[in-house]
Every structure is written in C-alpha cells, then in structure tokens.
C-alpha cells in the first residue's frame, strides 16, 4: 500500500495543499508568488466580472446536467427492459465513446455544427432554412458538447440503481391497481434518486470546471471558470488568483459530493429499514 498512498499524497494532496496556500499570498511582479499574506485574492473573486463568469458557468453546467438526466433516464430504463443477453452489449455501446479522446469527441461537434456542417447542410437541403443557423461558438454548442460527453456516465449510474430495484415492488404496485405512471413516480423513481444524484453531480462538477468544451465549442468567446483558471496560470500569470478560483471549484465539488453521499446513505438506509 505504501508506494500508492505515498504517490497520491505527494502528487495530489501536497500539490492541492500548495495551491491552497498560494491563494493567501500576493502575486509576484513577474508572475510567481510574493510571500506576503493577503485576502485580496478572495475579495477580487467577488468582483461582478468574475462572479458573472461563475454564475454563467453554473448556469451552463446546470442546463447540461438537466438535459443529460432527461436523456439518460429513459435510455437507462429502456436498457433494463431489453432482453437480458442484450443488456451488456447495449451498456458497452454506451460507454465506448466515453473512453475515447475527449478532444476528438468535442471536435466531432465542430464538424456537425459549423456553417457548412452536417446539420446545417441537412436543414438547407430539406428547405427548412435558407441561411445556415449559427449553431457553433455559443452557449448552445457548449451545452451540446457537455451533454454529449457526459451523458454516458449518467446512463450507467441510473442503470445501476434501476437494476437493483426489487422487481416484486413494481409488480405489487401494479397488482394493487396503480397506473404505469403512478408506479414509476411512487415506486421506481424514489429508488433511483441516488443514481440520478450520482450521475448529476458528476456531470455538474466536470462541466463547471471544464476547459476544453468552452474553449473549442464556445470559440474562446464564452469564458467559463475553467478558462479563467487556465488564463491565470498560463497567460495572466496571476497564480494566487488562479489558486483562489480552483479552491472555489473544489469547494463546490465537495459540497455536491457530500450531498450526494447523504442522499445515497438515506436511500440505502430506507432500503434496509423496510
């Protein structure tokens, strides 16, 4: 165990601790750090300009999360209802793109959404539009990219909680005369809250800190927190401020993971109590 824990301690815990401390120092004149205590980096993060970027990132991440869940839930449900010997193949088809290069999956949407791209081409060919739609380099494209990249994980998370549902609870509900919708709302949905939460937190966390998608599909015009952090480290060379922004990101992530753990704990508690 020693080497593994040592590796993670030295190359994950210590570096994260380091940027945590950088957040409290002043930036050096030529980049780098001046070791003078200050809280100025934090007050600067509250500037409306940066607050606006945080809020926009949160809004985009939330939209992507909601859409991903709406697409993933019925897909996961359909997979659990497919014949048993198909289910593994269907799941593997879901995760296969997820394990391929993120840059390429994002680039594929530049090809799909650009002015001469497949979607505009098809719509023009069908005579639906005369002028190509501006589908690329805006928040729409960023949301599409995030949903595309992260929905597979949500399907897996929801599938895993759906497949753990005791089939008899559904039959009991149907035998007692509940409609399909009532059975779904009162029996199935409550038992999959932890799966939805796990998938949702994953999409939200990875979306709000994303750098590649806004950079490539937002055309660099649409800044999100990830791009802001990137700029502080590679172009503005204001490391302490970049460190503060990363801390916010980590804080949001921890709050969400904690909430999700509580939800999952409550769900499993209910299952053992009943």
């Amino acid at each position: 165990m020693g080497p593994g824990l040592g590796w993670l301690a030295l190359l994950m815990v210590v570096p994260c601790g380091l940027i945590f401390t950088y957040a409290f120092f002043e930036r050096g004149l030529y980049g780098g750090i001046d070791y003078i205590w200050t809280f100025e980096n934090f007050t600067r993060a509250a500037d409306p300009l940066y607050l606006g970027i945080f809020l926009r990132s949160a809004r985009i991440a939330l939209t992507a999360t909601a859409i991903a869940i709406l697409i993933a839930y019925p897909a996961a449900y359909a997979i659990t209802r497919a014949p048993k010997h198909w289910q593994t193949a269907l799941l593997i088809l879901v995760i296969l793109p997820f394990w391929s290069n993120y840059l390429i999956r994002t680039y594929a949407w530049i090809v799909m959404l650009n002015r001469e791209g497949l979607i505009n081409g098809a719509l023009e060919g069908a005579g639906v539009i005369d002028e190509p739609l501006p589908l690329l380099y805006n928040s729409f494209a960023v949301v599409v990219g995030l949903v595309y990249n992260y929905t597979p994980f949500v399907v897996l998370a929801i599938y895993s909680s759906l497949s753990r549902i005791n089939r008899e609870t559904i039959e009991a509900s149907e035998d007692l005369g509940a409609s399909t919708f009532t059975t779904f709302r009162r029996v199935i949905l409550p038992q999959t809250v932890s799966g939805v939460a796990a998938g949702g937190v994953f999409v939200f966390v990875l979306s709000i800190g994303n750098f590649i998608t806004p950079d490539l599909l937002g055309g660099g015009r649409l800044q999100m927190v990830g791009n802001l952090i990137y700029d502080q480290f590679l172009s503005a060379r204001d490391w302490p401020f970049g460190a503060v922004l990363s801390m916010f990101l980590i804080a949001i992530m921890m709050v969400l993971l904690f909430t999700q753990a509580v939800l999952a704990g409550r769900a499993s508690g209910e299952r053992t109590n009943s």
């Binding site: 210590v14 570096p15 940027i19 994953f202 800190g209 992530m253």
Partner: peptide, 16 residues
C-alpha cells in the same frame, strides 16, 4: 483523482 477537475490537478502539479 477521478473527480477532481483536471484543470485543478493540472495547475496544482505545475505549481508543485
């Protein structure tokens, strides 16, 4: 390591 935004791990390692 699976859930930390990679940009955060990237700058942390660069700083280190």
């Amino acid at each position: 390591p699976m859930i930390i935004p990679d940009i955060v791990l990237a700058i942390a390692l660069l700083s280190f």
